[in-house]
Design a protein around this nucleic acid. Sequence first.
RNA 1: UCGGGUAUCGUCUAAUGGUAGGACAGCGGAUUCUGAUUCCGCCAAUCAAGGUUCGAGUCCUUGUACCCGAACCA
Length: 567
Amino acid sequence: MTKHDDALTEPRDNFIIDAVAEDLAAGRYTRPVCTRFPPEPNGYMHLGHAKGATIAYGVAQRFGGLFNLRMDDTNPAAEDQVFVDAMIEDVAWLLGCDLEGRVFYASDYFDQLYQYALQLIDKDLAYVEELTLEQIREYRGNFFKPGRPSPWRDRPVADSRRLFEEMKAGQHAPGSLTLRAKIDPAHGNMNMRDPVLYRILDQTHHRAGPWRIYPMYDYAHPLSDAIEGVTHSTCGKEFADHRPLYDWCLANVDIVEPPRQIEYAEIGITGVVLAKRHLRKLVESGVVERWDDPRLPTVRGLRRRGVPAEAIVRFCEELGVSDGSPGSVDTARLEATLRDYLNAEVPRVMGILNPLKVTIENIPEGQVEQLDAPFMPDSDAHGSRSLPFSREIYIDRDDFMKDPPKKYYRLAPGREVRLRYAYVLACTEVIEDPETGEVLELRGTIDPDTKGKNPADGRKIKGTIHWIDAGAAVPAEVRLYTNLFTDALEAFDGSQAIQDYVDPSSLELVTGALVEPSLRDAKVGHRVQFERVGYFAVDPDSESAGHLVFNRTATLRDNKFKKIFKG
RNA sequence: UCGGGUAUCGUCUAAUGGUAGGACAGCGGAUUCUGAUUCCGCCAAUCAAGGUUCGAGUCCUUGUACCCGAACCA
């Protein structure tokens, strides 16, 4: 079922797995273990969803069971088919599976759900309410004040049944009537104070068609789980208070071996905003262009940035599942997992963000040497390519300094560096703009006896830099991303405008970059490491832009280098 | 003030009455034709107070702190 080799095969044991194992041992279910990921199709999938999907999928995998993707599409006012399609695509990509026909819709159960509601009415466990929204709220009380019974609570069963049928038939105005469970108006748990089961909506369902009554989450969810044969229904702890109602619904209609809801602690990520309304605000206000902006924590955004699905899944798994109180992990954790994956999997190439020309005076004009360079050092994993090398090359401006500090072991006047996979280069001359002092070009010589070996006289070359032959360099655009938000986000409590926390330099556009010739026909999505620079992926814009566009997926760690300049 | 939940290194997470462990972050060092990777080392925790027990992070009592909950949203 999965295409990911290592990531999902052996999820770590956790308290959910223990609970499922206990249920199995106790013989609670005669059907196979089945879990589900139940997004509402009213937005794009993000990291928070990814964790939920990973957990549910992992439990199913662990027990050789089934995994359902179910659209919790019970509120047509908020939902849309484009989100349904996007969600299916994202989940399939993330999990690396084709879902094998296991995509379901709560809206497909509307008829069955209606029948169950009739059962509740007939058992005098549900009644049709005539109170308005405001009245219901007032009657319900609050945390400190118990609710009191609705005057319609003891309406005869036959009346409720007739009214409910009329609601379905569209004979009552939206908001005029609801169906309520008859549980306990004064219950300590607010969810149990005669919760609304059905409301009338003047909406046609994007999938189910011309319905007029729509089930509420608390009613539709447990029954949808049961209808699908779900055994274990995982969700965030914010639903723990809903579990009694989940169980009540299942216990009072005609259902055997009811599914079991298990809540785990949702976890935040520092520096990341997941709330749908804030994400939407960022898109609508134009802070980011689209939902797949590589700075967004949406699955589409991460994917476009070059983050592999396996890395996301592994991140979710490494986080673990706990029933503790929810906290926040540092973004560094995501990056660590990402780098770990990329480091092991991605080919090395050379790319220059800010080119500086170097003329090598002891190479004759017109001479081109082909140098063999592996795509993965010390490994045959990706084979190798041939790099042209001639009199004119480019290096990165960051790799040259006129007046370098002591520990700077790259190029400087009179100093030597190793050109990666080539020769040792000495800088003999710096050509500057006489007015601005800007370095225009360097001249130097190579030591011809240093290909594949160190200088014979034993001198140590401490630095190695990347380069690209001037005649073969391919122009490219590079987009450098950092966190979308400034550190001020820490103080964000959800009430301010999220746009005010956006870091305007979170995207840096580099238009004059150069990449090595092996990348000329790189496909969209292709991931590489520009040696010494970072990890990059080819952006879809490459197809329309007429040149290669790379997104920086992650930087390389640079813990030692920082110190050279910061003392 | 009601209901539910949770307290373990800075962070996330193990330890199911028997050596408090791992990962991330941080800090040292070694190796390196990527200042990457890799390797080694260091730092660092059981919310508090009582109790049960040969033995408590785990069980009990009391207290404290934090999270969630008052849509005809999910």
